[in-house]
Amino acid sequence: MNLRRFFSRVQSAPAARERLKVLLAHERAAVGDSDLVAKLRDEILRAISKHMQIDSEKVSVTMERGAQVSTLVVDIEIPFDVARKAA
């Protein structure tokens, strides 16, 4: 066996864990609570677009399931000029 390879080998389990966490966060949002998340996304979009122009593509609403609590993550990108006008 190549000794150097043996000792320098990187563990693969941490990578597996991180990849799974990222993937499942997305899949849970897409599959698990699809109706609720889609509805929330629509209403949040409508509420915000009353006050400023936003790109509907730049809005992400995701739900993360946890043991005790679930978190709703709303991520909205506001265009530079709109943000300046509002300020």
Partner: peptide, 16 residues
């Protein structure tokens, strides 16, 4: 032990 398999805690944390 070699770190090439998801740990019990990892799976429990992910699936809760």
């Amino acid at each position: 032990e070699r770190g090439d398999m998801l740990k019990v805690d990892d799976v429990l944390e992910i699936l809760s």
